[in-house]
């Protein structure tokens, strides 16, 4: 595999890594809490891109499987018949190109999609709780900058000691 081919096959990963790091940079460099959460969002979305990128199959379709054409139902290598769920459970580990098409069509990998659906939902859940905390912090300190909050606490402590 020469350099150009390598770059074509791995360019996506490199860009996604830069995007992830952009998000992480936003989170840790800013003291503004809303911007911090925005950065967290960018960071997480870029991780989702890493997952989805790895599940893409060239020439593939979205993983919504069409019913097999008439008579071809048994052609699938190890599709199994009804009731296959418990008895025929051996998952084949080694595949070759002939195994890839399902009912004659190539599909992209569904697993990263499933995981990332979960990831998106967890992300928005965290965001909601984080924003709720920000609203409360603003009510308490009248600012959403870390610096201001620290200063307010420092003053409060000095006043308490005096």
């Amino acid at each position: 595999m020469n350099g150009m081919q390598f770059l074509a096959g791995h360019f996506n990963y490199i860009v996604v890594i830069i995007l992830m790091m952009t998000g992480l940079y936003i989170v840790i460099s800013t003291g503004n809490m809303v911007k911090k959460l925005t950065g967290l969002g960018v960071f997480q979305t870029s991780v989702f891109q890493l997952y989805i990128t790895m599940g893409k199959v060239t020439g593939g379709r979205p993983p919504i499987v069409a019913h097999a054409p008439e008579g071809a139902e048994h052609a699938a290598a190890n599709g199994g018949e009804h009731g296959a769920s418990t008895a025929d459970t051996a998952v084949r580990m080694v595949h070759d190109m002939a195994d890839v098409p399902v009912n004659g069509v190539i599909y992209s990998n569904p697993i990263p999609h499933v995981l990332i659906l979960t990831g998106i939902v967890v992300g928005v859940a965290t965001l909601a709780v984080g924003l709720a905390l920000i609203v409360r912090i603003r009510e308490t300190y009248d600012s959403i900058e870390e610096e201001d909050v620290e200063e307010a606490e420092y003053k409060a402590r000095k006043a308490a000691n005096a």
Binding site: L37, L40, Q44, V129, G130
Partner: peptide, 8 residues
């Protein structure tokens, strides 16, 4: 929350 989410 911020640190925990970075960790996650």
């Amino acid at each position: 929350l911020v640190m925990g989410t970075i960790g996650a």
